[in-house]
Computed example of a mutant assay.
Amino acid sequence: MMNIKKLISIVAISIFSFSTVGCNMIAKTPEAINKSVVAKVNDEKITRGDLDKSAAMLQVIEQVKQQYGENYAKNEEAQSALKTQRDQVLDTMITEKVMEQKAKELNIMPSDSKIKSEVKTQIDTLKKQQFSGDQTKFDEALKQQNLTQETLNNLFYQQVKAQDVYNNLSNNVTKNLKITDKQVEDYYNKNKYKYAESTDKTHLEHILVKTEDEAKKVKTRLDKGEDFAKVAKDVSQDTATKSKGGDLGYVNYVDSGMDADFMAAAIKLKEGQVSDPVKTQFGYHIIKCVDKKEYPVKKLSAVKDQIRKELEDEQKQTTIKQKLTEWQKAAKITKYEKNLA
């Protein structure tokens, strides 16, 4: 959920930015620009005003202002960045429109009263967290930023509605989803390290090069007995670790922050073992396991419910993603790029 101070800042910026963004469109007033159609999803229109007043676009405007300053509207580079981001936000809005239309078709559209009730709950929670529930302080913060309660409600309404529509569709298309005991057991056996009593970790060193051929040459040098750290300092292209002989220190098995393919290969290594070339998005790695700290694994009975939930969530995400692709392909979608400038 967005911090209210951040939200207030974003909305304050939008008050003056709406009159300047797009002002280079000759012979069009701000009102005409706002009414111009930027996309159609089947028979429903999305206007430039809908786009520029979306919560996502307001965040973009805030980021552009921070990067380019108060006069960002007169900066060509800033306007180009806005155009690119506006196009991306529009794609999201198109997807949301497709979902809304499908939810209406399936008669699972969340009610207006339900959405408003959730909005009230979220704003009340923020009020409590940021202003200790003090309505006077909350109202004063809105007033200082020329922000009305109605505008704040509308921003939250957009986000709550989109999330509720997504949840309803996801539940609908996955209502018959079942995870078997065998699926749970198989996943457990393949990923036991995820359920260790403490966090498993491994001390790694690596050498990064651009091509597989270079990686094979590195492996050959190491197989002939050359020192790993020396070779890393000689050829590794990872500037963060090269001077340290490729030393990455201890890396957690779970939530490592490392490339998934890199970690999958690293976890399999025994102490002192050096990998064959491992391809990732960054290039080719040779990985050495210096040390490992592994802990006992919890019994399946203790984690089976957790695993079942994880597998259900994963399959739900996969299923709804596939369905969204199908629905978008079936929909008649037209974008009017000229109205995004």
Rank of each mutant, 00 (worst) to 15 (best):
L58D: 08
K332A: 15
A264N: 09
E271Q: 14
V89D: 01
A265M: 06
T180I: 10
V251E: 13
K35F: 00
V254E: 10
F228Q: 03
H203Q: 12
N24D: 15
K40F: 03
C23S: 07
V209H: 07
A39M: 02
K128Q: 08
T174E: 06
S54K: 00
T125N: 08
K190G: 08
A232H: 02
A56D: 15
T202F: 07
Y295P: 04
I307A: 03
N154I: 06
G249F: 05
T47F: 04
I108E: 10
Q322C: 02
Q145D: 08
R308K: 14
E105V: 09
D164N: 13
F18Q: 13
N168D: 15
K309N: 04
A331E: 11
I286R: 04
I46F: 01
S111V: 00
A341D: 15
D50W: 07
V37L: 08
A265Q: 04
D305E: 09
Q85T: 08
L269D: 00
N154C: 06
E140G: 12
Q145V: 07
G249I: 01
Q135S: 11
Q144H: 09
K288V: 06
Q130M: 12
F138S: 07
K279R: 10
Q183N: 00
L169D: 01
T121P: 01
S243K: 10
D227Y: 07
K194P: 03
G133F: 00
K309W: 12
K161R: 12
L340A: 07
F138K: 01
A264P: 09
A27D: 01
K279S: 10
S111C: 08
A302E: 11
I26S: 14
T174M: 07
I179K: 01
L126H: 10
L126N: 13
Y336I: 11
A103Q: 00
L126M: 14
F131I: 03
K217P: 11
T29F: 07
D276C: 01
L340N: 06
A260M: 14
Y187C: 04
K114Q: 15
L51E: 05
Y68R: 00
A302P: 05
V165S: 00
E105T: 07
L58G: 04
G22P: 11
I8V: 05
Q145E: 14
V303S: 05
S113M: 07
A12H: 07
E105C: 06
L248I: 10
I115Q: 04
R86K: 08
V119M: 04
E226Q: 13
E118Q: 12
A302M: 05
P30V: 03
K288H: 14
C289G: 04
D52R: 11
A330N: 12
W327E: 02
I286A: 09
V21H: 11
K270E: 08
E212L: 05
G22E: 00
Q79W: 05
S117L: 05
E205P: 06
